[in-house]
Amino acid sequence: MLQDGSVHVHEPPATPARTRLIVDVDTGIDDALALLYLVADPEAEIVAALCTAGNVPVDQVTVNTLSWLQVCGRPDIEVAAGSQVPLVAPLMTTEDTHGPQGVGYAELPEPNRPRSSRTAAEAWVELTRQHPGELTGLVTGPLTNLALALRLDPEIPLRLRRLVIMGGCFHHPGNTTPTSEWNVAVDPEAAKEVFDAFSVVPADRRPLVCPLDVTESIEMHPGHVAQLARLAGCTADETLSVDDPRGQRSCSAVPLVRHIADALRFYMEFHHDQGLGYLAHVHDPFAAAVALGTVPYRTRPATVDVELDGRLTRGTTVADLYGMWGREPNSDIVVGTRPPVFFERFLERVGSYIRDLNLPPSKN
């Protein structure tokens, strides 16, 4: 049946279900926050963190991911690197948004372990074969790794429990070109291959797409950072202000709070320079919350395709909401949420996790 444009409401369940995830990231300030949120949630299990080129080149993404999971207390999670370049286009990176190393002003320790011996594409294939129907895929960067995996094994969509994508924009300005969102714009061919490949899945397993239309409503402000620090057990206030000297560093004695504040300060300075206010759009933690089902959201079924040839519109995601193309829906687009509910859960989970992580070991 072709789509009717109807809106579906999703509320967090009273009893959260355990979610096992393959996470594909281009770490990235908001990717780092998404990883921390997943690590902090007791009902989430990351089976692998796969790295793609995007915010910074893939080797730096891989170092960032290894180091970030280390400071988050999870050096056991596999980290695999993907392709150095998109499928067709030259690589674009965005150090102006995320900093020279991709984590703002944060100075992470060097990783104390190597990356996985397998590639990200191989990990997508092998993990979904080992755990058919059990794993949720969460992609918060370009879709290059998943597209390469689909070329190795087109059956991946039928083995994933669900796929959640942070990417695209539909009725909202782009953040890379007037009509395109960064993750899709970096590798439009990969995005198209993924949307086309997932056309085979049943309606209840269609990819959930979290576009800029919604993720730019997830605004993290200095007050959120201060609240997070308090919940994490910091005895001194953690303040970020537009009036602070540019590049000021946190003095927090809690390493994770210090890294978060230093990363977000850079991100907020960038948004302020763009005329958006002294805030940070934390796109990826919201997509993580959708993957976990811990945030209320609304969706509309649609057939999503990606423009590859337009001189002005390359990388634009286009949604057919009413079946005009005569093709079945291949996605459920997230069209709304309640940001205060997201932040309440996010700050509580992450704050309490950092507090527990920072507690002195028991003498018993």
Rank of each mutant, 00 (worst) to 15 (best):
27 T>F: 01
120 A>S: 15
227 Q>H: 11
72 C>R: 00
191 A>G: 12
89 A>G: 02
327 R>N: 10
75 P>R: 05
266 F>G: 09
234 C>W: 00
103 V>L: 14
250 S>C: 14
218 I>K: 03
54 G>M: 08
166 M>P: 01
214 V>F: 01
318 V>M: 12
226 A>G: 03
232 A>Q: 06
224 H>I: 01
250 S>I: 06
234 C>D: 15
53 A>N: 09
2 L>S: 13
254 V>D: 08
294 T>R: 14
254 V>N: 12
11 E>D: 15
164 V>L: 07
285 P>S: 12
312 L>Q: 10
212 L>I: 03
265 R>W: 02
312 L>V: 01
309 D>E: 04
126 E>K: 12
94 T>P: 00
251 C>N: 14
74 R>H: 03
272 H>A: 15
43 E>L: 03
228 L>M: 07
31 D>C: 14
199 S>Q: 09
2 L>Y: 15
301 P>T: 07
192 K>W: 11
148 L>I: 05
116 S>Q: 10
198 F>V: 09
88 V>M: 06
178 P>S: 08
214 V>N: 07
118 R>Y: 11
342 F>G: 05
30 D>A: 06
67 S>E: 06
32 A>L: 13
274 Q>H: 10
331 S>Q: 07
42 P>I: 01
77 I>A: 11
346 F>E: 02
248 Q>P: 02
346 F>V: 00
192 K>P: 05
172 H>Y: 15
229 A>G: 14
322 Y>H: 11
279 L>D: 10
320 D>M: 04
364 N>D: 13
334 V>H: 09
137 G>A: 15
155 E>Q: 15
308 L>S: 08
273 D>T: 12
334 V>P: 10
268 M>F: 01
15 T>N: 13
318 V>L: 14
171 H>T: 13
251 C>F: 10
111 P>N: 09
14 A>Q: 15
303 T>V: 11
76 D>H: 07
259 H>E: 07
68 W>F: 12
221 H>C: 08
284 D>Y: 00
338 R>G: 03
